[in-house]
Design a protein around this nucleic acid. Structure first.
Lengths: 371, 371
DNA sequence: GAATTTTGTTCAAACCTTTGCACAAGGAAA
DNA sequence: TTTCCTTGTGCAAAGGTTTGAACAAAATTC
């Protein structure tokens, strides 16, 4: 009558405190304490249990631990448009630093599209300890859920529109510094290639640049819309290359490195010399156009671009972002805080140098805090 | 004597089944069943509980649910080097499709660096249901942990070295198809710009290309090492541009779109015309070099590159990757499986056309399965 | 009106970990 | 010998959810 149960796949179940306790002949709590290094457990017992755990490949169940009311160790992550080369770099740094701090990233969103409700709910379902947003357009659902459930929210590379903590580079100051550099280089006709019109980051950079020019009595000769992609930079470069040399700007600020690289490609394809890079060593070609960017993406710093740009202190930006988040996990009532980090002017060969300056040096206090 | 407890931040605790049950005056199980749509709960009760839950913004605790022995809904994700523009695109698609299926991605690693032990342990601690690897160099710790703990592992865009399931584009076939296209275009001198020497993907593409050429009695004129970055493509392009026109190859296969774009930039900067794009509309400049790539990254398909390339069926690749993973979650004993999807030849303007062919068309069965 | 089914709800166990408290054994001090 | 302290361990509760089984009340059948 009684048919024996079918031989279910043996697949020895994953080790738990219980299985270790049975193997060691002690109680569950002893195992737990031994593994956590509690001083009350005798060295002999601890060694025995440690060996057993190592052999079984035991890993404590973070979910059960979280259930006790502690931290989940999970951080929700909302990523911006990945075409902008700054974001992949930011992502790598973020993953590395989060791991160093023992935090895990729960990837909720990447790119431009909108977020469905279920995804937003995941924030709550998985009990994330906090949320990190690098996206320019903060999904409002995420903001609402975080606000309504005491989930700390920190934005990186963008300032908070209404509230929340944020860390970003001093965009306006960087723009101004580039204006100074170009002015010192003796440039006369300035152009800007703008980014997304709805990101504070782009707007601040452009504003800082234009206002510094204005303060020196110089007006912008022309302006292009780049839309934050490399292609946008190329399109602007084509138009610049097509201008008669007399009207052509001799200095162009592209508000992101991706834009700047596309721009340089187009100028070169149009046989327009860029910065000091054609004749080399400071002797520049006649009619050369200087190009400067912003972000300090690795690919832009190296040849063939050797871009003069403001290098964002990426490590510090990420570090402070995580600091802000952890602080708000400790104290959810912490006031909104905006941290602004000053970038570094990296002098490459894409822009004519001021008299007497040397290529390759970096100026400015990297990561000095001003917020 | 008794000091009243300091007024701890009220911060009404998050809604749970218990709090809802108390509010509704029913038991916890009734609430659970009502929310899950169990037919045994009366419509009146259900409506009341639904309203209460909506008002409280209730979201079930996925961690507690997982503890019951079910699925966590978490997938561990190991990302490859983000400089290769294919990976950001893959990431966006993956995030979107995972969300559609109700899966969450736990981001374990991004980039080239190695993984620390704690991160690898996270796989077990957070009870991931499976693991997805897009990295070319599979971290061995991850592989070991997955194998030892019945965690299904699926690789995307690379074949398994020893074991495991994988989905990737038919790289060799794509390389061969490009060779055919270039041969039909009447090219004579062929070059290859190779990628990472240790990724099966790059090697297969190159092999497919070279073998097809050989089968037609043509040998490679020269070969460059690109190292999978845009800069590598640029370097190869500079060397090609510097060759005397007689020795210069008239067709170059860059094994990735990033390489191809860098290559084109360098050729243009060196005033070497590329494909049919200079004179436009099929009439090509004298001494033009045709460039073809592989991947079908959006930026490469559009102007200014208009690259002729093999477009990976990205959506299908991701879909099948998740299929494989889910299948292995159902049945961990499922045999290793390799799915190969055929790409589509996208004819742009970066390579001379065979007589009578039209630009912009796509040839080949997108995503036809062969594995 | 009693027996039976249907309907709606509750009980209790299980998942795994952490931790306050209790407990036992052994040694030292009184 | 009693009392107290130290050292090492076990007990049990808690955390939120799911689910099989039990239970009560109402509706149906004879």
């Amino acid at each position: 009558m009684d048919v024996p149960a079918p031989p279910t796949r043996p697949a020895r179940a994953r080790a738990t405190l219980l299985s270790l306790a049975q193997a060691a002949g002690v109680s569950i709590s002893t195992v737990s304490r031994a593994l956590r290094g509690d001083a009350r457990i005798s060295p002999a017992t601890r060694r025995r249990i440690d060996a057993l755990a190592a052999e079984a490949g035991y890993a404590p169940n973070a979910l059960a631990r979280t259930l006790l009311g502690g931290r989940s160790g999970l951080i929700g992550l909302v990523l911006g448009p990945m075409q902008n080369p700054f974001y992949p770099a930011l992502l790598e740094e973020l993953v590395a630093q989060a791991a160093e701090r023992g935090l895990r990233l729960l990837l909720l969103h990447a790119g431009e599209g909108s977020m469905d409700d279920r995804t937003a709910q995941a924030l709550l379902q998985y009990q994330v300890d906090g949320c990190l947003v690098t996206s320019a357009a903060l999904p409002s659902r995420i903001a609402a859920i975080c606000a309504g459930n005491d989930v700390p929210l920190v934005m990186i590379n963008r300032v908070a529109r209404e509230h929340g903590a944020a860390v970003c580079c001093d965009n306006a100051e960087g723009g101004a510094r580039l204006a100074d550099f170009l002015l010192a280089g003796g440039h006369r006709r300035f152009a800007v290639v703008g980014g997304n019109a709805d990101t504070s980051t782009s707007l601040d950079r452009e504003r800082g640049f234009v206002e510094r020019l204005a303060a020196r009595g110089v007006a912008l000769a022309c302006r292009f819309d780049g839309g934050a992609t490399r292609e946008g930079g190329w399109a602007a470069g084509e138009r610049i290359a097509a201008m008669p040399p007399g009207e052509r700007p001799d200095a162009v600020f592209a508000v992101g490195d991706g834009l700047a690289m596309g721009l340089i490609d187009a100028l070169r394809a149009g046989a327009v010399p860029v910065g000091a890079s054609v004749e080399g060593e400071g002797v520049e070609a006649a009619g050369a156009v200087s190009v400067v960017g912003f972000d300090g993406v690795a690919a832009a710093l190296r040849p063939p671009y050797a871009l003069t740009t403001i290098v964002q202190p990426l490590r510090a930006v990420v570090r402070r972002g995580l600091d802000l988040l952890l602080a708000r996990m400790e104290d959810p009532a912490a006031p909104d805080e905006l941290v602004t980090l000053r970038g570094t002017l990296h002098v490459g060969r894409s822009a004519r140098l001021p008299a007497g300056a040397a290529t390759g040096a970096s100026h400015g206090d990297a990561g000095r805090e001003t917020g």
